[in-house]
């Protein structure tokens, strides 16, 4: 397969990520409706597919309001940060052999760095709004994302040990014989839980818990600034799903079908899993969330790393 020019990949991936993220809004609503025995949006266009477009027109037409009591610069900057950090992470994802913007040799660390910078968006939004509920949402987001980041990184180190590289291309190639979901099942579970918390998806959407905090960190946002948070969340889900496919399920690897198709098949499985989580689970209390992170999931991640390290040392040949 001829690999396209990085610039072509860049444009294609950018367009694809944004389209996927907005299409995901429709996908989620339909899927949730199906599970809850109702129709969901089905009026605009075929199967309601154009509903997102209609919503987008509406959101662009809304008044773009900055509250007079807000810290203006931070208020405007916050929604941009989340979209930028998530989109930057897409640059290091290998979609198929050669279809990648930048094959960094520290791609995995780059992903972790970008996801840890994403916290600023939520924290700044909560702080700059100068509103009780926003501030509480922002503080919850800071505590939650900081805690779950710690073992998100640790849960991936087992994969790094097995593959012997931080490069995502290298990690996919290392799974030619065996997907890492088999030796790293614990790592997969931990990463999935951390991914849910990092994207602030239900059941971990405490920073915006509607029943307690109005809309949490984005209470004061309207128009396209709110839209950016919305799209940023769905971009985040797409990113974490793609990372799960790449790190644990062999990325583009698979028999028969073309690699790109395999990748997207896997991607859609995990996107649906994310949505299923929303349909299936209630929200925990915030202290439970923090206690799980530090007292259960972090020790488990350390244990997983320890056992993987010992097994690699004992059985894998020295590189």
């Amino acid at each position: 397969m001829v690999s396209p020019h990085p610039l072509v990949s860049l444009l294609a991936i950018l367009l694809l990520a944004l389209t996927l993220a907005s299409g995901l809004i429709w996908f989620e609503r339909r899927l949730l409706a199906w599970w809850q025995d109702r129709y969901g949006p089905n009026r605009v266009g075929p199967f309601g597919l154009l509903q997102v477009l209609a919503d987008m027109i509406k959101i662009f037409a809304k008044e773009d309001w900055v509250p007079p009591f807000a810290d203006k610069v931070a208020f405007i900057l916050a929604p941009a940060i989340i979209v930028v950090t998530v989109l930057l992470s897409f640059a290091v994802l290998p979609f198929a052999p050669g279809v990648i913007v930048s094959d960094l040799n520290i791609a995995l660390l780059f992903f972790l760095a970008m996801s840890s910078l994403g916290v600023y968006s939520i924290v700044l939004a909560g702080w700059s709004s100068d509103n009780k509920y926003s501030l509480l949402g922002g503080m919850r987001a800071a505590a939650q994302m900081l805690s779950y980041e710690v073992f998100m990184g640790l849960s991936l180190m087992g994969v790094v040990l097995l593959a012997g590289t931080f490069s995502l291309n290298g990690i996919v190639r290392a799974q030619r014989h065996l997907w890492f979901i088999v030796p790293q099942f614990a790592g997969f579970l931990l990463f999935f839980i951390a991914g849910l918390a990092e994207t602030r998806r239900l059941p971990f959407d405490l920073p915006e818990a509607e029943s307690e905090l109005v809309a949490g960190f984005h209470s004061e946002y309207s128009g396209m600034k709110f839209g950016m948070f919305f799209v940023g969340e769905y971009l985040g889900i797409t990113l974490i799903s793609a990372m799960i496919a790449i790190l644990f399920f062999g990325g583009w690897l698979g028999p028969g079908l073309p690699p790109l198709l395999w990748f997207f098949l896997k991607l859609f499985c995990f996107l649906s899993l994310f949505i299923l989580m929303r349909a299936a689970l209630p929200r925990p209390r915030f202290d439970q969330l923090m206690a799980w992170a530090w007292k259960l999931l972090l020790p488990l991640a350390l244990l997983n790393l320890l056992v993987t390290g010992a097994l690699v040392l004992a059985f894998l040949p020295r590189r």
């Binding site: 972790l112 760095a113 909560g126 922002g138 800071a142």
Partner: peptide, 22 residues
Amino acid sequence: AALEVIVYAGSIVVLFIFVVMM
């Protein structure tokens, strides 16, 4: 470079901001 962003910019400064917000 990656650790600088992950550890300092992504965690420690966020922790500072968290305390200041608190």
